[in-house]
């Protein structure tokens, strides 16, 4: 694999449990805090592999689409890249700051105003307060919510809510952008702006990963599409 990779999965396996196995997991973690964790390569009762030996290298500046049915492991890949969870077996290398736009508006608080939520959501996405102060006019302008920016977001319509969330997300200064099913935000006009914005992010040399069920949509935006089924990469087409 090339040394220019910004993200590299090396034989990554991820195990999840169907049940809540609290007692085991807590004890394991506690023990793991004091001694080396043993690699568990066997499945216990009720466990399954969400990812099975994923090898994936993404170069800087690439725009990659992930496509596959529900539960095929697309979001798990995103979670591993954004460091929310970790592989059971295997390694992942990831250089640069990640902006995980996995769920738009995660961290929005209904009682806070649009402006206050920009600060909240922006810092969660890794922006500093100083960067945010500079970006705020742009973010507000992009969302088209100038009138309502000092209104608590609980009074927003769901479309306004998502537009604000998306505007914050695409103004992140991260190196890697993860978009999970977010291309269906707002009306057609706003979707068009989103697509343009994503293209622009790509032109700025940022790395982009997009998850979608819609292969037509993906082929329009992405350099290549990776097909995932049952936690395995099926094909990588150009």
């Amino acid at each position: 694999m090339s040394s220019k990779s910004i993200i590299e999965f090396r034989d990554v396996w991820k195990k999840y449990s169907r049940h809540q196995v609290l007692h085991n997991s807590f004890r394991e973690e506690l023990m793991g805090a004091f001694r080396r964790r043993k690699r568990k390569e066997n499945l216990a009762d009720g466990e399954f592999w969400a990812l099975q030996g994923v090898n994936l290298a993404i170069k800087r500046g690439e725009c990659v689409g992930l496509h596959g049915p529900n539960g095929s492991g697309k979001s798990t890949i995103f979670k591993i890249i954004s460091n929310v969870t970790y592989p059971t077996v295997g390694d992942i290398v990831c250089f640069g700051r990640v902006a995980p736009l996995i769920e738009l508006g995660a961290g929005f608080h209904p009682d806070l105003t649009g402006m206050e939520n920009i600060y909240m959501n922006g810092t969660i996405l890794g922006l500093s307060i100083r960067e945010l102060k500079r970006l705020i006019p742009e973010i507000v302008e992009f969302s088209g919510l100038e009138e309502f920016i000092d209104t608590p977001v609980k009074k927003y319509s769901s479309g306004m809510y998502l537009r604000l969330a998306f505007s914050i997300a695409v103004h992140s200064t991260a190196d890697i952008f993860l978009f999970d099913e977010v291309l269906s935000v707002g009306d057609e006009c706003f979707q068009q702006r989103c697509r343009e914005r994503i293209c622009q992010i790509g032109q700025d040399g940022k790395t982009i990963l997009i998850v979608s069920h819609n292969p037509v949509e993906l082929s329009k935006t992405c350099d290549r599409i990776v097909e995932i089924q049952h936690g395995k990469l099926v094909e990588a087409s150009a």
């Binding site: 806070l112 600060y119 810092t123 922006l127």
Partner: peptide, 18 residues
């Protein structure tokens, strides 16, 4: 540290909103 500051500020705002 910025995230921590914003979290504190957020909790403070939420607490005394309305």
């Amino acid at each position: 540290k910025d995230l921590l500051l914003v979290f504190i500020w957020r909790e403070f705002l939420i607490r005394y909103k309305q």
